[in-house]
Structures are given as C-alpha cells and as structure tokens.
Write a protein that binds this DNA or RNA. Structure first.
Lengths: 192, 192
DNA sequence: ACAATTTCTTGTCATAGATCAATGCAGGGC
DNA sequence: GCCCTGCATTGATCTATGACAAGAAATTGT
C-alpha cells in the first residue's frame, strides 16, 4: 500500500527506515467512490491527498456556471487547494473524483507534525509546489499564445493517458474551449 | 538599504538580530539601468532578486515572436525563474527591467547556504511560491473565463499602480489581448 | 438486453477579438 | 526648435471560436 508513495518521496530526498515508517504511520488511507466532491467552493480544504489509484479533477466555476478545469490528477500526484489548506481560508475551487479512488491523506495538523519531525520533507513539498508553478506558467503562456488545436496537441503529448480516462468535455474545459469546438478540432485533425 | 527587505521577511517569520544580520550580509546589492535584460531565454537563471526600487517584467516569446507577459514586479517583490534557478536548467523566459532598478540578489549557492544556516527562511520562500501559485491559478481561470474588459478591470483593481508606470502594450500582452483592442476597450469604458 | 441518461458530433449563425493600415501625438537627441 | 522613433488611437475587414439546436453514439443502471 505504501510502496508507491515511498518510491515517490524517496525520489526527492533520502529517508531512513524510521522516518519512512513514521511518515507512513500518519497517512490516512481513504477509499472514495467516483463522482464524489472532495472539496466545495467556500469550504476550507483540510486535506492534501496522494493518489494511489484513480483520477480526480479540480475546477473553478464562474458566476454564469461556466467551468474551468484547473487540473487532472492521477496516480502518483497530489491533490489539494494548497492556499486554502495552508492558510485555513475558504477555497474558491471544487475538487471531484472522476473514478473510484484510493487516497493517502494528510491533514493540516499531521502535515505540520510531519514537517517538524522530518524536516527533509519540506524540500519534497517545496519542489512539488515549484514544479506546479512552472507547469502552470507554461500553460498560461500556451493558453494565451496558441490555437485550440495546438493546445490540444500539447495536452495529448503532456498527458497521453488522460484522454482515455476522462470525458471529452472535461478536456475542453481544461483547454478553455467549448466541447463542440474540441469535437470539430478532432475531426479536422483525423481527416488529415 | 535593508529596512524594506527585513520588514518584508519578518512579516512571515521571526528572526533574531544575528540571523537578520547574516541574511543582509549575503545579499548582493545591484543597481541596474532600465531596458536591461536580466535573463535571456536559454540561459540558466542564477539570481533570485528582491526589488528595492524599480519595475521589472518577465515574459515569454513564441516561435512567431508573439510576446506574453507573465508578470510585472515592483518594489517588495521577488523576480526570478524559479524552475531554472533551482534546477540549473535553461530558462524559457525573458526578464527585463522597465525602469532603473535597485536589487538585492541571491545566487543559488548563497540561497542554499542561507537555507542551511537559517532554516526558518525555508518557510518564507515556500509561502512566496505558494502565493504565486494561487495568484497564477486564479489568473488562468480569468484568462479563460472572462472578457477582455473584465480582465482589464480586474488588473486595475489588483495592480492599481502599474498602469502609470508601464507602457500600455505591455499590459495588453499581460492580459493576452492585442494592444489595439485594449485601446478600444479603454475608450469604450471611458465613454460610459 | 433495454431504457435512460450522458456524451459526442454536425450544422448554421453570431461575435469577440485579431490584423492591417493610416493618423496623430509625445518625448528625447541633436 | 525640429526631426525621429515609438506609442496610442481609430476604422475597415477577417477569422477563430462560441452558442444553440438536433441527432447519433456511447455508457450506465437495472
């Protein structure tokens, strides 16, 4: 049950047997069916969850009900609203399982404890946030600078396994285009 | 010279006199004229700079020469390409001063030393990255979900001092619209 | 296996914003 | 004071993408 996450963590830093055991001992295992809301706009996010199995998305909704998918997360990723989680402030996003999921969960308290006991893990989480930031920066750039088709191709390259797992209209909402238009882009692409 | 930055840092964490003195001692002061390139695409970013005075932007350029401004930074902000800085990998962005600037600079080595000697600062920088991430997330959302005018209004609210300091076409490139269209949005707004 | 629901496709029409070109305007160097 | 050069504005088209509607296809639960 912990091989995957331990593998993941030890890629970034070296931990002793003891440290690893402690780390595992404070993780809470959770099994969640698909189509479950893990976080609702306005709630304070009280989890940072490692995905052992499954698929999750988080998204925003604007005043008119228009959805924007911020990210898909699958095995070996973490999901959370970091800002809400750390500052204990209401979130403005939604987090929802798209498949049945197995999660390993940290609460704000357990995470703090963990950081205090195993400071080396600070690094792991800082790296994670930094990587996230870099990805988001380049995504913003592409969102602004490129056509729908380019964005879709880029998405396929970056996340080749996602399209087989999630409905197409979610991908459209990730790319920032309408589902109809994504469909048209796809048919145009397949004709050539 | 250090009041500003010390103020900034002690807002996030408590430091002793000694720690603060050490922190200040390793900062390198740099005075840079406007229109200077601090980082060029392909270079490895070797600085994380606190802006004591001045205004800086970082931006991407795509294959066709189309520019996207990632952010404007003014007094009391840090500028860097975090990913390039930490992983010693080539950057894909440009960083350029828009005004004469006074900077307080960390190199990768001095930052690491600093983190080792004053671990409390880990927290400061992690918070900074997290805040950045949250801002960028909400910006991506707005970029996708809202009209040019809304984005502009939001920009004015969030960064009220920037428009007086930077050329309008830079703002357009931040908002992801053409300079001509921003001009049209502005005249339409002022007519009502 | 079937009905019910959800998702995907296809067509037509509408529009925000891009692109191009012309004009005006201001600041800096001489 | 005058000429450059770089910005901002304005107007006339053009285009990528959105919105809506209706049908086809796929998935789901029972």
């Amino acid at each position: 049950m912990f091989e995957q996450i331990n593998n993941h963590v030890t890629k970034c830093t070296n931990l002793s047997e003891d440290e690893l055991a402690y780390f595992n001992s404070i993780l809470e295992f959770k099994s969640v069916p698909k189509k479950t809301m893990l976080l609702h706009e306005g709630d304070i996010c009280n989890f940072e969850a490692y995905i052992n199995k499954g698929c999750i998305r988080n998204y925003y909704i604007d005043e008119n009900g228009f959805e924007v998918t911020l990210q898909f997360a699958i095995e070996d990723w973490w999901v959370s609203d970091i800002a809400s989680f750390h500052n204990h402030e209401p979130s403005n996003m939604f987090i929802e399982t798209l498949e049945d999921c197995e999660l390993l969960v940290l609460s704000p308290q357990t995470k703090e404890e963990l950081m205090a006991r195993v400071p080396k893990l600070e690094r792991v989480f800082r790296l994670m946030v930094q990587r996230n930031l870099a990805v988001l920066q380049s995504r913003l750039f592409k969102t602004i600078a490129t056509s729908a088709q380019e964005k879709y191709l880029d998405f396929l390259k970056r996340y080749p396994t996602i399209p087989q797992r999630v409905a197409q209209h979610y991908i459209a909402s990730y790319l920032g285009i309408s589902p109809e238009f994504l469909s048209k882009v796809r048919t145009k692409m397949s004709k050539k």
